[in-house]
Amino acid sequence: MISRRGFLRLVGGSFFSMVSLGAYAVGIEPMLLTHVTRYSLTPPNWPAGLRLRIVALADIHACRPWMTPERIASLVRDANALQPDLIVLLGDYTASMRLVTDGVPASEWAQALSGLKAPLGVLSILGNHDWWSDPEAQKAGAGPVVARRALEHVGIPVLENDVVRLEKDGHGFWIAGLADQLAFLPSQDHDGFKGLDDLDGTLAKASDGAPVILLAHEPDIFPKVPRRVSLTLCGHTHGGQVRLFGYSPVVPSRFGNRFAYGHVVEENRNLIVSGGLGFSILPVRFGMRPEILSIELGPA
């Protein structure tokens, strides 16, 4: 039988462990040096002579003290140092979290992102928080949202149900950007969230047989993505922000852990979901460090 003194030591030790764990999850892991997560794959029907390096940043959620313009500028330097052919931004630049000391105006985070450089350029899409944080767009039921205007002001194109054809080493390929699937909050006009995404219409704009890389903020679109798409890149989930032994207790997806994080292959189709850089709801990360993706496509 455990003694009274032993019981008190156990309780005290457990309490200290819980406090320490909470302090780490809130104050340390979210601010750790950003991890570079690397993937290397050759999708089906990928051109043999096309070797492409894509660097992806997702879910910045600019705010103070967690994601300041200075920290974003540091992430930009880290991304450029990876020497990508192309940089893509996967949405959610704004923060809707209440536990912040101050917001970061769109002009400031966009200016920090303007330092991104790659030979084939920088392309972006929007996320749900970029729409939700714009009351005028919510009221009007249409954009452009503040985030889009800020990105375009610093020269970063925003793809909303649109495509861009790029070329490297004599091989063409398409980048398709999907409009957000949760753009409008529930209102008197409609129940539930309302999206602006048009997958079929977007892919129809890729007018030849060159490979397609799809940018979509939320990964829930993936079951509908046809095999023509070589790779789908998403953010939104933050890897659940808390992830233990490959499992995230809470994932903002109707598919739960199926598309929570990482490289998913289904029916010979490829999806990569970023764990993101910032956070929403709570400033907590545990087992899911902020990350930048570096993706090598094509044979080594």
Rank of each mutant, 00 (worst) to 15 (best):
R98Y: 07
L244Y: 09
I213E: 06
R9A: 14
E296M: 08
G172D: 11
G27D: 01
A216Y: 01
C63T: 12
L99Q: 14
V265I: 14
P65V: 04
G287Y: 13
L41R: 04
H129M: 09
P211D: 07
F255R: 02
V158T: 13
D198C: 10
Y247S: 06
G27I: 00
S207L: 11
F259S: 01
V100W: 00
L166S: 04
L233K: 09
I125V: 15
V225I: 03
D220M: 04
T237F: 08
L297S: 02
R149S: 14
H35K: 15
D78G: 02
A204M: 10
L215C: 08
E70P: 03
T202K: 06
C234M: 01
A79I: 07
V88W: 01
S294N: 05
G170H: 04
S187C: 06
P47N: 03
E160H: 01
H190L: 05
P30F: 04
G13M: 05
L166Q: 05
G275D: 03
G27K: 02
P69K: 08
G192N: 12
D198W: 09
G262F: 09
S20D: 02
L126Y: 06
V11M: 12
G127Q: 07
M18V: 15
A112S: 15
G209K: 14
A81I: 02
L282M: 12
L182D: 13
R269M: 04
A62Y: 00
A140N: 15
V36N: 00
S107K: 13
D169P: 00
L231S: 02
L82W: 01
S187N: 03
A95E: 11
D102C: 02
M31Y: 13
G172V: 01
P299G: 07
I221G: 06
L57P: 07
M31C: 08
E218Q: 14
I295M: 01
E266S: 11
S14E: 03
L151D: 01
A216N: 12
A183V: 07
A25F: 09
H238N: 11
A73E: 10
L52V: 10
P252Y: 03
K117W: 03
G103K: 11
L57E: 05
Q188V: 13
G275M: 00
D197R: 05
E29D: 04
F255W: 11
G170A: 09
F7I: 09
D130V: 13
L120G: 11
K139P: 00
V264K: 10
D191A: 15
H190V: 08
G276P: 08
L123G: 10
F15H: 00
T232R: 06
R165F: 00
S107F: 03
H35T: 14
